[in-house]
Simulated scan of single mutants.
Amino acid sequence: MITKENIDLFLYTVKEYKRFSDYFSLKDNYELTDSYTEKEYIAIQTKLILLRKYGSNNEAVNVRDIAKFVKDNRSDLEHEMTKIISDFDRVQTNQIRTILSDGTELNLYKTIENVMYGLYLHADKDKIENIKHINEHLLFLVSRQYVQEFEKIIMQLYNYLIEKGFQVEEVQDIQRASMVFLGNDESNQQGITKSPYWANLYGNDVGDEQILEIVKETNIEELSILAISSCFFEEIVKDDFSETSLRKLVSPVTYSDWGDFSEAHTHINAIPNLGMSSKVRFNDRHDIAYVNFYENVEGSFMIDKPHIIGEGIHVLSLVYDSDAQKWEIYSFGAKLNDYLI
């Protein structure tokens, strides 16, 4: 049974499909007998694989089912959905005939099934045997014709829905940060409880004594960088922050970027519960330092295994001034790349 959820799935997956389509940047129209490059071959066959779910009867995003549901529930789209259904049926029953070398005749859809399930999604023996009985060039021309016609139908349906107020549902109300753990979960545990947003990390809560031990193991240079970072953030969040004090901490070459620090003050204060990492990272030349700041930190925690984290982290980048022989703050946000210095 088709529901509003199916429309959400359709819009969400087509949005991803558009990334591929935009990247390949193919012509809008090809004549059936047009020649093609290797790049076009790869692009068309990739699209063919991605489009399969929109034509399969047992998929949640079958174009015909989606269009019929919208037609039955939105009178203002009845005409458009009727055309989508008609175009879909026309493509699926297209009478372009592929005649194999053994005399077997296949319509367009059956030919596509041979390509899809023989070469790509599966290794169906019978379908591969069919493929062997047709010239590769002719087989691709048929695939391209199908992709060209079917893609237009999908994009028309997508655009109709977007224009009429249907929206691609994005992830809402994130309770915990998502991440990739690169360790062995059998010998590690997710023991972070005081900062629920970071509970997916493999780590543990820490108290004052453990923090003191971490400080003792940190070298003088890193402690200096952490002190500069801490002073900057303690000052920038104040309602009556001192521009003079902040300028003493940042690199002179960035004065114009920081301005009077009011924009940075507003931006940083809008980030909930920033917590500073005790780990300092350096570039290969050791003239750029990075200090991570984590959102939604309600209690201290420690992780000792590598993770890849895609959200909730902001990077304070510092550069070393060899003339003044001191570390200075350069930027806050994304990681500073070596080539900028």
Rank of each mutant, 00 (worst) to 15 (best):
N6E: 02
Y12I: 07
T13V: 04
Y17G: 06
S21N: 15
F24A: 11
S25Y: 06
K27A: 14
T33H: 11
T33I: 09
D34K: 10
E38H: 10
E40M: 00
Q45H: 12
I49R: 03
N57W: 10
K71M: 13
H79F: 10
H79T: 12
D89G: 02
R97S: 11
D102H: 03
K110L: 14
I112L: 07
M116T: 12
M116Q: 12
M116C: 03
Y117H: 11
K127L: 12
I128M: 11
H133G: 01
I153T: 06
N159H: 13
Q167A: 12
E169N: 09
A177F: 09
V180S: 10
F181E: 06
S187D: 10
Q189A: 08
K194G: 09
W198R: 04
E209P: 00
E209N: 06
E222G: 01
E235L: 03
D240H: 04
F241L: 09
D257Y: 13
A270C: 04
N283K: 03
N292S: 11
N296A: 08
V297W: 05
V297T: 13
E298S: 09
G299H: 07
I303K: 06
V315F: 02
S317M: 00
V319N: 05
E328R: 15
K335V: 11
L336M: 08
N337P: 08
D338T: 09
L340F: 13
L340E: 14
